[in-house]
Design a protein around this nucleic acid. Structure first.
Length: 268
DNA sequence: AACAATGTTCAGTC
DNA sequence: GGACTGAACATTGT
């Protein structure tokens, strides 16, 4: 699930429910998710501290603590954050679409990959079926581009137009602009009526400006509505589907290594 | 059973 | 060295 909008939801949940509570214990035994930290290293850095702020840039999220550590959280392909209060009730915050309640049958505890327990009985957990999420101390954010929902038009044009890659591949490059995933990229390119396979050096200034506007619109709209799966193009990504705007056949391709759906009539 | 999956990274190849 | 591509990563769902 997680692209920028989902991560923003997760960040809001942490901000609303996990700040200022003393950390009693941490389960960091999953050495794959917590690599390169050996078991106990993250726990030792967090126990006795409180989280003081929750930040996000693109799909990267991190928490400041009262100690020296910064806690980096990445949801990967399928990760979600669940914060529960002392009574085990999930904290509401940003995830309006499918909250994972404590009683949700979908919430197999075997998929808890990282857990922070607070002294008041509350819990913050990373729930991740595919285990591609990542927890680490002092994450390196230096290679991330500006956030996709915040980047200005001039900087966007300058960063996007460099090189010769297909425009979708460039959108997915987190070092160019941070936060765009496969679904948001398809949605954005569809809104901008651009062929995902087009090389960035073939785009003129007007098209780059339109792409910027489409990206910010799609990103902010998805945040507002609770996720990328609220986009207009979702549900039109199967063989035989049609463009919700013009009715033309949706076409499938592989661009930037990802399955790509676009309207072959309108996206040129 | 084979393949795709909303992400990142690393090994290759220009 | 930079830009770019494709496979690998771990696991689940179709």
């Amino acid at each position: 699930m997680p692209e920028l909008p989902e991560v923003e939801s997760a960040r809001a949940v942490v901000e609303a429910g996990a700040l200022g509570r003393e950390i009693a214990d941490v389960d960091d035994e999953d050495t794959w998710v917590c690599r390169p930290h050996p078991p106990g290293e993250i726990r030792d850095a967090l126990v006795g501290q409180v989280l003081t702020a929750a930040h996000r840039r693109g799909k990267a999220m991190w928490c400041d603590t009262s100690g020296a550590a910064v806690l980096g959280l990445h949801l990967g392909m399928s990760g979600r954050l669940v914060v529960t209060d002392a009574g085990g009730e999930p904290v509401e915050g940003g995830d309006r679409v499918r909250g994972l309640s404590a009683t949700d049958p979908d919430r197999d505890p075997a998929w808890d990959r990282f857990t922070v327990r607070f002294t008041d009985g509350g819990v913050l957990r990373l729930f991740d079926k595919r285990r591609l999420g990542r927890v680490r101390l002092d994450p390196d954010l230096g290679r991330l581009g500006p956030d996709a929902g915040e980047v200005g038009v001039a900087e966007f044009r300058e960063r996007m137009s460099r090189g010769t890659a297909p425009v979708k591949a460039r959108l997915l490059d987190q070092g160019v602009v941070a936060g765009v995933g496969n679904l948001l990229a398809d949605e954005t390119l569809w809104q901008a009526r651009l062929d995902p396979r087009r090389r960035v050096d073939s785009l003129d200034a007007d098209q780059l400006t339109a792409l910027h506007r489409a990206l910010r619109r799609a990103t902010r709209r998805a945040i507002r509505r609770g996720g990328v799966h609220t986009g207009e193009l979702i549900g039109h990504r199967r063989p035989g589907d049609h463009c919700p705007r013009c009715g033309g056949a949706m076409e499938r391709a592989t661009v930037g290594g990802r399955t790509t759906w676009f309207c072959a009539v309108e996206q040129t």
